[in-house]
Write a protein that binds this DNA or RNA. Structure first.
Length: 484
RNA sequence: GGCGACAUAGCCAAGUGGUAAGGCAAUGGUCUGCAAAACCAUCAUUCCCCGGUUCGAAUCUGGGUGUCGCCUCCA
């Protein structure tokens, strides 16, 4: 078996950078809270998926046999981040006059299309929440049997008072919790404890629930609560022990806290001990949110002429646990960096028969692993690209390293550099396409005159070409001719 | 109000006790008739503030301040 390096990741559970351990040696189960498919993902959502993608790919690079699972939430949501009351999926459907499932399919496709553009690998298993109703019913039944859940007012609630420790991520004192922080959240009188949460609904303040299922709990049709899906989908595909659970920091509480409560009460043992949380992308006004109306999407960036991979590079330049403020100035910065990086790689051309220097290759590879093994330091990993390009070694080694690093960084470095070279060659080949021979002759004569420093003649020829309806443009590859 | 994370140049940032990486921008230069590109050079006596520990602190510690997130139907 491949020697796996020691990897440290910040663990929200212990609040320290722990050495990664897996339940089964060499194998690693990774779970990601997937998107709610009622609208396009904004680039803040996508930041989390980019950083989780780096984690996923690095773990594979380091030698783990990774199985990654994500859910698609296509049922049961609030209408907005501001929680105004309508179900998100229902509201999305109304907005677009489609059925809930059509909406879900549409935005699921849109989500993965965005991921493709950002080089985010698709998880090994992608499970829509509506696929797992029997699993939810089974888990809820067991929780009822074990006394961790109770029926009240047509719903089933999880009884948090049965837990030794509910707030696993924070040291909350119940009396200090602010009530009704979020507008529109009303206290639910059915709850025995303030912190109890719903596992199964038949009665909800959201009346137009489009999707309902039969259950053994009530005669009425119902639908699952908002936390049960991740617990069940994870268990379905990754078993009773989960190695790493990913998500945005905003899901730490209550979502992840509730997942742990459900899963461990159901399983009767510890479930997941490593929690990876990605900080938010903010704009000048704070947290990026879909409820503010217009929001930044990948398509919007593209329509403004940005390569989505520049955004990926922008994200990699920062640390996943730091909140990042998005601005177009910062993105332009990344665009420049990306273009220059590609240009430099394009200039790196091995001579035929050049061999890779194994020692240099291994020493850089080692540094690359060290950077990412220390709590996924992507900024240092990107810096290493520059060290490689500056290194005293041959071009074959440099290119091999760039290609190797890019299996994790996923910036299309080699492909983009190759394309740049081909484009330049193509331009060179076609620079006189469709231009009459007499014009070409004049252009060539001007080039000669320039070489001979006969600028009077050169300018004269340029004017003659201009008079014939063509403009000469000097480029790094030589003179180009454009028909006016 | 409570809990947590973060605070390093114009911007993005690295840094886990030994004297401030890297990138973008900027400035000067080389080279090109000009320009672009490329290349070379310059660019934080100092790391939010005030104490403490230490031979030595951006790094540890105590106290402030600021920014962001969460506070229970935001997956």
């Amino acid at each position: 078996m491949k020697q796996i390096p020691e990897i440290r990741l910040y663990n929200s559970y212990t609040r320290s950078r722990d050495i990664l351990k897996t339940h089964e040696e060499g194998k690693l189960g990774l779970y990601t809270c997937g998107p709610t498919v009622y609208h396009y993902a904004h680039i803040g959502n996508l930041r989390s998926y980019i950083m989780e993608d780096i984690l996923d790919k690095f773990l594979r690079y380091a030698g783990y046999d990774v199985k990654r699972v994500a859910n698609i939430t296509d049922v049961g949501h609030l209408s907005s981040d501001a929680d105004e009351g309508e179900d998100k999926m229902v509201k999305g459907a109304k907005r677009e006059k489609k059925t809930v499932l059509e909406i879900a399919q549409y935005y699921t496709d849109a989500f993965f299309s965005d991921c493709d553009k950002l080089n985010i690998r698709r998880p090994d298993v992608v499970e829509p929440a509506t696929n797992c109703i029997p699993e939810y019913i089974e888990m809820i039944s067991t929780l009822l049997e074990k006394g961790y859940a109770y029926k009240a007012g047509g719903n089933i609630y999880f009884d948090t008072s049965k837990l030794e420790r509910y707030y696993v991520f924070n040291e909350h004192e119940e009396e200090n919790l602010a009530v009704g922080v979020r507008e529109g959240v009303e206290e639910d009188g059915n709850k025995k404890n303030k912190t109890d949460f719903v596992l199964w609904f038949t009665q909800s303040k959201f009346e137009d629930q489009a999707l309902k299922w039969e259950s053994p709990f009530f005669d009425e049709m119902g639908y699952p609560g908002w936390h049960i899906e991740c617990s069940c989908i994870s268990k379905k595909h990754l078993g009773e022990y989960l190695d790493i659970h990913c998500g945005g920091v905003d899901n730490m509480f209550p979502h992840h806290t509730n997942e742990i409560a459900q899963s461990e009460s159901y399983l009767g043992h510890e479930w997941c001990t490593q929690w990876f949380h990605v900080a938010h992308l903010n704009d000048e006004s704070g947290k990026m949110s879909k409820s503010k109306g217009e929001f930044l999407t990948v398509s919007l960036l593209e329509s403004k002429g940005y390569d989505p991979l520049s955004y990926r590079l922008f994200c990699l330049g920062s640390h996943y646990r730091k909140s990042l403020v998005f601005s177009f100035e910062a993105l332009d910065n990344a665009v420049q960096q990306y273009e220059k990086l590609i240009a430099r790689i394009a200039q790196t051309e091995p001579m035929s028969g050049e061999e890779i220097d194994g020692q240099v290759f291994e020493s850089f590879r080692d540094k690359f692993i060290k950077a990412l093994a220390m709590d996924l330091n992507t900024a240092n990993a990107v810096s290493l690209l520059y060290d490689v390009l500056k290194a005293k070694t041959n071009d074959a080694t440099k290119l091999a390293l760039v290609e190797d690093f890019d299996t994790v960084l996923s910036l299309n470095l080699t492909e983009a550099a190759k394309k740049l070279r081909e484009d330049n060659e193509e331009k060179e080949k076609n620079k006189f396409a469709g231009v009459p021979q007499e014009i070409i002759d004049m252009v060539n004569e001007r080039t000669e005159a320039k070489k001979a420093k006969n600028f009077v003649r050169a300018d004269e020829l340029r004017d003659m070409v201009k008079a014939a309806g063509y403009t000469i443009k000097d480029t790094p590859q030589g003179a180009e001719v454009i028909k006016d």
